[in-house]
Amino acid sequence: MTTTRTTHRPPREDRPQAPPPAARPRWTAALLRRRATPFGYLSPTIVLMVVLMAVPIVMVISYSVMDNVITNRSPEPVGLANYGTILGDPAFWKAATNTLAFTSVSVVVHLVLGLTFAILLNTELLGKVTKAVFRVILVLPWLFTVAIIAVLWRMLLSPNGVVNAILESVGLIGGEVEWLSNPTTALAAVTFINIWAGYPFYMISLLAGLQGIPRDLYEAASIDGAGPVQRFWAITIPQLKPLIISLALLDFIWTTQQFALIWMTTGGGPIDATEVLSTFTYKLAFTRYEFAEASTAAVIILAFSMVLAYFYARSQRARD
């Protein structure tokens, strides 16, 4: 699939990931050096991560077993009591459910929109310039800082806002819809904003992925009588699958921590309609000063994403 190849080879015949196993190695200086080499390459990453991430993460984990920290000068260990408190808090589960809904809908729609636009932009039916113009317009939502996206959409979605004015003029709605203030539409509205802001990441990556699918695959399929829909499911999707998996993983992790967008549009409200894990954790930490409990929530989120990362790492191995 790399563009260095101009002729197609089936993916399975790809270069082996690791060199063929050599004769059973003996412990020699040369072998030691060989063992050390990859760590040499990884050393800047490891140093950076250990120095800047390990300390704070270990601290957060240790906070989670204390009674309270930071605002408390002599914290006492309380074992797993905070875990009991958090896991027994219905607000936590409500936030977890909302997060899951917000994240999964965002990821799926990001993918669908991103793929659709990528395929449209990959068309040969339009001229180069036309495509370049659309490419730039479609990437625009990606270029703004979250604070601005939040205030912009608050303005657009307000009961007197532009969105209502437009929808009313075409007769889709009557009257002033409170998109963000109505408990039944709020979560959908923030999800919509997140979708608007995030799909270009997929679009660009998938567009690139599409460029890399060898054309002869499609030609061969056409000769076998496959229509566009069959070609899409039989070639496009399988070819893009590895890319889709990594994009979706990154997006999933990033979206579960989306804080500023939700905080600045709804503050987790109305009532608890858009309360997600990140706003829940923020409130624990900075409005109730329960840093130990906030850290506990963070550790729970970390544990969950490690499971996710484990499956990701495994899927990656299996492919090699």
Binding site: R154, S158, P159, E176, E178, L180, S181, N182, P183, A186, T265, T266, G267, G269, P270, I271
Partner: peptide, 8 residues
């Protein structure tokens, strides 16, 4: 009451 109070 004006609409939108819950997130205003």
């Amino acid at each position: 009451t004006a609409p939108g109070a819950f997130t205003m």
